[in-house]
Nucleic acid binder design. Sequence first.
DNA 1: GTCCTTGCAAAACATTTGCAGCACC
DNA 2: GGTGCTGCAAATGTTTTGCAAGGAC
Lengths: 153, 153
Amino acid sequence: MEDIILEAAKEKLRRKNYKLTMPRLSVIRYLAREKGHPDIKDLFEGIRAEKNGIGMATVYRTVDLLLELGIIKAITLKGHYLRYELNWPDDHHHHLVCKRCGHVTEFGNCYFQSICREIELVTRFKIEEHALEAYGLCPQCLPAGKDYSTENM
Amino acid sequence: MEDIILEAAKEKLRRKNYKLTMPRLSVIRYLAREKGHPDIKDLFEGIRAEKNGIGMATVYRTVDLLLELGIIKAITLKGHYLRYELNWPDDHHHHLVCKRCGHVTEFGNCYFQSICREIELVTRFKIEEHALEAYGLCPQCLPAGKDYSTENM
DNA sequence: GTCCTTGCAAAACATTTGCAGCACC
DNA sequence: GGTGCTGCAAATGTTTTGCAAGGAC
């Protein structure tokens, strides 16, 4: 699993004459291991904990590079720092965020493509990508006994 | 038009013993006038230009308060600062951002409610709100002669 | 008059840059 | 041995806080 990403990453780096160095490897490994959509500080602290000596500046530079090469993706959630995840091929999903504990879950059902052309005709934009985030309460934070009705959207 | 928001704002402020002061009024007026989804710096500079003397700290505090009272809303776009807009009642829309010039357009077609319950059943979350952002090229930035086909999403 | 609110300055925090030394072909 | 990469420290940029003075009610 992780190997697919790693091989693809090596290839993308090589193609632009970048090296697969320890910090770069660490960031990819960390993201492959931690499914929790860490932010830049989580990355820094997590990597520093396992392998002392990495600097904050290096994490910023590494993340920028991996983003640019499409090896990782950034997700933007309401009022928080950017969070990062690996960019698996053909993995189209969105995020569901618990307003109480902050836990992030992924969901795949996305019917945006089906209305995309309609919006393109109305706005005359050419749409290239999109992001959808839903906010609510996760099963753990949801008081027991309440049902799952949809309102206030 | 603007009066509706202003009256609602006054009422919400009064109810919590806050006053309708000049900076608060300026932020509301600025957002009513400028449709361009300004960020915090735009607000600061725009307001300072018309009425000298406002401080950055005040803009931060004002925006926080107006957000808390639901008088304005924040929108989170990829890799940029938070942007703000007035919170009109019953106005459900999303944003379409030009990747080249940064221009933000609104669109109203949103069929997320119809799949919301499906996602709630799968994830066991209770969904309370959502945000959808689309990124692409606006008509001005789109090279002439190209068509509006949908791909790479 | 009483609080709340403000602007300014300073503090705290986040991000970027410059650079000498290291690591890897 | 040349090139790119790193960690550190310093510079820069952003947000928050403390506080005395001013303003809304």
